[in-house]
Computed example of a mutant assay.
Amino acid sequence: MAWEGVQERRAGKEELDDEWVTYHHDLSMPQGCRVGGFPSWYTTDPSPMNCEACAAPTILLITVSSREWDGRDGSWMPVEEGDTAEDLRDPCPTKFAVGRDGLLNVFACPTDPGHPHRFSVQ
C-alpha cells in the first residue's frame, strides 16, 4: 500500500478510483489458474515447502483458483473473455471450487519429478 500512496501523491489524487492502477489489483501476481510463477500466501504466512523425500526446496508447478478475476482487476481478465458486462459478471468461468472460494498451489521437487508433490490451499 505504500507504493500506492506514493503514486497517489505523484498524481495529485487523494483517493483511488476505478480507473486508477493499484499494485494489488493490477501489478501484483496474476489472478486465476496459472502454471509456474510465485505462490499466493494470502490466508497464511509463507511456509517452507520442501520436498518430503530429499528436503530440496520445491517450486510452484501450478495454481488452481476458484476465481479468475474479481470486479476490480479487469487487467488480469483474459483478452479472449471480451469486455462486455456479461463477461465481467462471472469471475468463475472455470467453475472450479477450491476450499472456501480459495486456491490450490501444487509444488514439485526440482531434483526428481518422481518425488511426492506438496500442496497448499489458500
Rank of each mutant, 00 (worst) to 15 (best):
M1Y: 03
D83V: 08
H117L: 15
C109S: 08
V35R: 13
Q122G: 15
E8C: 12
G114R: 14
A2K: 04
A56W: 01
L104F: 09
V21G: 00
T44K: 07
P93V: 05
D45Y: 03
G71I: 08
E81Q: 11
T84R: 14
G74Y: 11
A85D: 15
H25E: 12
M29R: 13
T94D: 12
A97K: 14
P30L: 06
D83R: 14
P110D: 09
T44Q: 09
R89C: 02
D45R: 07
D112C: 12
S75H: 09
C33W: 07
N105L: 04
P116D: 08
A108P: 00
H117R: 14
R67E: 11
G99F: 02
D73G: 14
D112M: 05
E4W: 01
D112F: 04
G102A: 09
Q7E: 15
D112P: 02
M77D: 04
S40K: 11
H115A: 03
V64H: 05
Q7T: 09
I62Q: 13
M77R: 15
S28M: 07
D26A: 06
E80Q: 11
E52A: 09
Y42G: 00
V106W: 06
T63V: 12
D26Q: 07
I59Q: 12
P78S: 09
H24L: 08
G102N: 08
P30S: 12
L104Y: 10
G102L: 04
L103D: 08
A56Q: 11
R72K: 15
A108E: 14
P91Q: 07
W20G: 00
A108G: 03
M1L: 06
E8R: 15
E86G: 01
L104N: 12
F38K: 13
H115D: 05
I62V: 15
A11W: 03
C92A: 15
R10A: 12
F38L: 10
P48F: 02
D70V: 11
G71C: 09
Y23K: 05
G5K: 05
K95D: 12
P57M: 03
R9A: 10
L88T: 02
C92K: 13
